[in-house]
């Protein structure tokens, strides 16, 4: 099932923040993890990730640093790793709560839950 473009675009920021919550990641890795965890249902156009990452970095939600790629994966190459900043963690918590409330509200209408 393909999701609408707007739905994907709206979810990309909380997903990136959630991915970086536990450990630093580089762009391509994030794409792979999302594709793997969602079983391919949330397939991003890879390029769309980078403008989001740059916007988050400029906003101070995440930080970036260059580091050597592991020798067994890509010897002699460098990758840009992103980490979540304190401001990003706060934003992630806010987005999660917003998502929960949105989910409850939409479910109540769409699936006929309690009013």
């Amino acid at each position: 099932m393909d999701f609408s473009k707007d739905l994907i675009r709206g979810s990309i920021v909380p997903i990136v923040l959630a991915l970086l919550k536990d450990r630093p990641m580089y762009g391509y890795e994030m794409v792979k993890v999302v594709n793997a965890r969602t079983g391919g249902r949330l397939e991003w156009k890879e390029g769309t990730l980078y403008p989001t990452l740059h916007r988050l970095q400029a906003g101070g939600f995440i930080s970036a640093r260059w580091a050597d790629a592991p020798a067994d994966e890509a010897p002699g190459r460098k990758r840009k790793y992103y980490s979540i900043a304190r401001k990003g963690r706060t934003e992630l918590a806010r987005r999660r709560e917003e998502w929960r409330q949105f989910d409850l509200a939409v479910n109540a209408i769409m699936l006929g839950g309690a009013t």
């Binding site: 390029g47 769309t48 403008p51 989001t52 740059h54 400029a58």
Partner: peptide, 20 residues
């Protein structure tokens, strides 16, 4: 191809980094 439409991505990269 997996990266997406180059023109659109170039524009989005510019928009994302303009303030910076």
């Amino acid at each position: 191809k997996a990266l997406g439409d180059p023109q659109q991505l170039a524009d989005e990269l510019w928009q994302a980094n303009r303030r910076r």
